[in-house]
Amino acid sequence: TTYKLIANGKTLKGETTTEAVDAETAERVFKEYAKKNGVDGEWTYDDATKTFTVTE
């Protein structure tokens, strides 16, 4: 399944996707990606669109 991340960070803005077996796995991947890019904010997830959003 393809999951999408929308990053609304102070230093990183944009979108990326990952293939994962479930939302929990995708969330781990995206949180690691955000951490590597210095983004720390509020996370939301929309199951209907398989989209995570992080906003600083």
Score class of each variant (00 low, 15 high):
residue 50 K to A: 04
residue 43 W to V: 02
residue 11 T to E: 09
residue 2 T to A: 05
residue 56 E to I: 09
residue 46 D to K: 03
residue 42 E to L: 12
residue 24 E to M: 11
residue 5 L to A: 02
residue 43 W to P: 00
residue 43 W to Y: 02
residue 23 A to V: 13
residue 12 L to T: 07
residue 11 T to G: 11
residue 35 K to Q: 11
residue 11 T to K: 12
residue 30 F to H: 01
residue 45 Y to T: 00
residue 31 K to P: 00
residue 43 W to T: 01
residue 15 E to T: 13
residue 22 D to F: 03
residue 32 E to F: 05
residue 46 D to S: 06
residue 12 L to R: 07
residue 37 N to F: 14
residue 23 A to H: 11
residue 17 T to Y: 15
residue 56 E to A: 09
residue 14 G to M: 15
residue 22 D to R: 03
residue 26 A to M: 02
residue 33 Y to D: 02
residue 33 Y to W: 15
residue 3 Y to W: 05
residue 10 K to G: 11
residue 45 Y to D: 00
residue 19 E to R: 13
residue 27 E to S: 08
residue 35 K to V: 09
residue 39 V to P: 02
residue 28 R to Y: 06
residue 38 G to H: 08
residue 53 T to N: 04
residue 6 I to Y: 07
residue 53 T to K: 06
residue 30 F to T: 00
residue 21 V to L: 12
residue 14 G to C: 15
residue 6 I to K: 07
residue 40 D to S: 13
residue 51 T to Y: 02
residue 21 V to C: 13
residue 55 T to G: 05
residue 50 K to S: 04
residue 18 T to E: 04
residue 32 E to L: 09
residue 22 D to Y: 03
residue 47 D to N: 09
residue 18 T to H: 07
residue 53 T to M: 08
residue 47 D to W: 08
residue 20 A to C: 09
residue 29 V to Q: 09
residue 3 Y to H: 03
residue 35 K to H: 10
residue 19 E to M: 14
residue 26 A to R: 00
residue 45 Y to A: 00
residue 29 V to A: 08
residue 23 A to Y: 14
residue 9 G to V: 12
residue 13 K to M: 12
residue 24 E to A: 14
residue 40 D to V: 14
residue 41 G to N: 01
residue 16 T to V: 15
residue 6 I to G: 02
residue 22 D to M: 03
residue 50 K to L: 07
residue 8 N to E: 10
residue 54 V to Y: 03
residue 53 T to W: 11
residue 1 T to S: 11
residue 8 N to F: 14
residue 28 R to A: 12
residue 8 N to W: 14
residue 21 V to Q: 12
residue 29 V to H: 13
residue 33 Y to L: 09
residue 13 K to V: 12
residue 35 K to A: 13
residue 38 G to C: 08
residue 47 D to E: 14
residue 45 Y to K: 01
residue 8 N to G: 05
residue 22 D to P: 01
residue 56 E to S: 08
residue 19 E to I: 15
residue 30 F to W: 02
residue 12 L to Q: 08
residue 5 L to N: 01
residue 17 T to M: 10
residue 34 A to N: 02
residue 25 T to S: 13
residue 14 G to V: 15
residue 15 E to I: 15
residue 56 E to F: 08
residue 55 T to H: 08
residue 54 V to A: 02
residue 16 T to L: 15
residue 40 D to G: 07
residue 28 R to C: 07
residue 56 E to T: 07
residue 25 T to D: 09
residue 8 N to R: 11
residue 53 T to Q: 06
residue 12 L to G: 09
residue 6 I to F: 06
residue 55 T to W: 10
residue 14 G to N: 08
residue 3 Y to S: 02
residue 26 A to P: 00
residue 44 T to S: 13
residue 10 K to H: 13
residue 17 T to H: 10
residue 29 V to K: 09
residue 25 T to W: 07
residue 9 G to I: 09
residue 11 T to D: 09
residue 11 T to P: 05
residue 32 E to M: 08
residue 43 W to G: 00
residue 5 L to V: 03
residue 10 K to T: 13
residue 4 K to V: 10
residue 35 K to W: 10
residue 4 K to W: 13
residue 32 E to I: 07
residue 32 E to Y: 05
residue 2 T to P: 05
residue 37 N to M: 15
residue 37 N to Y: 14
residue 1 T to E: 11
residue 36 K to V: 12
residue 56 E to C: 07
residue 33 Y to A: 03
residue 31 K to L: 06
residue 6 I to P: 01
residue 7 A to V: 15
residue 6 I to C: 07
residue 21 V to E: 12
residue 37 N to S: 07
residue 12 L to A: 06
residue 53 T to C: 07
residue 28 R to E: 07
residue 23 A to E: 07
residue 54 V to M: 06
residue 47 D to K: 09
residue 9 G to E: 04
residue 11 T to N: 13
residue 47 D to C: 07
residue 7 A to S: 11
residue 43 W to F: 04
residue 31 K to V: 06
residue 39 V to N: 03
residue 52 F to A: 00
residue 29 V to W: 14
residue 7 A to P: 03
residue 40 D to L: 12
residue 23 A to K: 15
residue 39 V to R: 02
residue 49 T to R: 06
residue 10 K to V: 13
residue 35 K to D: 07
residue 28 R to K: 13
residue 24 E to V: 11
residue 30 F to C: 00
residue 41 G to P: 02
residue 56 E to G: 06
residue 25 T to P: 01
residue 15 E to Y: 13
residue 48 A to T: 12
residue 12 L to W: 15
residue 25 T to L: 05
residue 25 T to K: 06
residue 44 T to M: 09
residue 26 A to I: 02
residue 44 T to R: 08
residue 18 T to Y: 12
residue 19 E to W: 15
residue 18 T to M: 12
residue 27 E to Y: 15
residue 39 V to G: 03
residue 6 I to S: 04
residue 36 K to I: 12
residue 52 F to Q: 00
residue 39 V to C: 10
residue 34 A to M: 10
residue 42 E to K: 11
residue 16 T to M: 14
residue 25 T to C: 07
residue 25 T to M: 12
residue 40 D to T: 14
residue 41 G to W: 06
residue 47 D to R: 07
residue 4 K to S: 05
residue 3 Y to I: 02
residue 2 T to N: 06
residue 28 R to G: 06
residue 5 L to R: 00
residue 42 E to I: 15
